[in-house]
Each structure stands twice: as C-alpha cells, then as structure tokens.
Computed example of a mutant assay.
Amino acid sequence: MGEVNSFIQTIPLNYFVILCTVLFCLGVLGVLLRKNAIIILGCVELMLNSVNLLLAAFASYMGDGHGQILVFFIMVVAAAEVAVGLAIISMMYRNTRSVDVGIFNKLRG
C-alpha cells in the first residue's frame, strides 16, 4: 500500500484538481443539456466519482486514511442511488414507453 501512496504523491495535486474539475463540469453539462434520464443518472455518477477521486487524492496527500473511508461510504450511497433511480426509470418506461424527462411532467397528479 505504501507504493501506491508514493506513486500518487509524485503527481502534483494541481493535476488532480484540474482533472476532477473537468470531470465534474462534464457531469453538470450532461445533466443540464440531456433529456434522457439514464444519461442524466450517468452524469450524476460522474460528478460523484470526480468528488471521490479528489477526496482520495487529498487524503493521500495528507497521509490520512479517514478520507478514503469516506470515499467508500460515498460509493455505497451512490450505488444505492443508482439502484433506486434505475427502478424508478424502469417503472416510468413501463408507463410511458420513453425515458425522456420531458414526458415525466405529464405524470404529475
């Protein structure tokens, strides 16, 4: 495990910040511009994973394992979010035969 931390610490922290910022911005653009619910869910996952990567990089640079434990719990919550989201999307598809989020406004009661 020490070899991995030494490898990560050879990469400057600014590179991780730039990479995670680009990934997060791509996820935000996907959420704002797309109408497909499955792609929106994927973009939310991309945003969560970019935050996880940055948190793990900061934890590695600080030499603290608490950040990596927090990353694990965020991944568990993200997996549960995807399971619930896909269940909701499959029920919506069963009713409307589409995953376009514009159609979901018709389902308001």
Rank of each mutant, 00 (worst) to 15 (best):
Y93K: 13
N95K: 15
T96L: 08
R108M: 11
G85K: 00
I103G: 02
L107M: 11
I88G: 02
M91D: 08
S98Q: 08
I89Y: 07
V84P: 01
F104L: 08
T96F: 05
V101E: 04
V77G: 09
G85M: 04
A87S: 13
R97S: 05
L107E: 10
A80V: 06
L107I: 07
V99D: 00
A87D: 12
V82C: 11
Y93C: 10
R108E: 05
Y93S: 09
A83S: 06
M91H: 09
V82I: 13
A80M: 07
I88C: 08
S98Y: 09
I103E: 11
F104T: 05
Y93P: 05
G85Q: 00
F104W: 08
I88D: 04
S90E: 02
A83N: 02
R108C: 12
V77M: 13
I89G: 01
V77R: 03
T96R: 13
V101Q: 13
G102A: 07
L86P: 06
V77F: 12
L86N: 11
L107T: 10
V82H: 02
N105M: 12
M91K: 12
T96A: 09
V77Y: 11
M92H: 05
R94M: 09
V99C: 04
A80H: 01
V101C: 04
N105Y: 13
I88Y: 03
L86A: 02
V101W: 05
R108N: 14
M91L: 11
I89W: 03
N95G: 05
G85A: 00
A80I: 06
I88W: 03
R97M: 09
V99K: 00
A78S: 13
V99I: 10
I89T: 03
E81R: 09
V82Y: 02
V99A: 09
I89Q: 08
V76R: 06
S90N: 06
G102M: 12
A79G: 13
M92C: 14
N105D: 14
I88E: 03
K106L: 12
V84E: 03
N95E: 14
G102C: 02
V99G: 00
R108Y: 12
S98K: 05
A80R: 04
K106D: 06
V101D: 07
I89V: 14
V84H: 03
S98C: 09
R94A: 11
A78H: 11
I88K: 07
A79Q: 04
A87H: 05
Y93W: 09
I103A: 09
N95R: 15
A79K: 03
A80T: 02
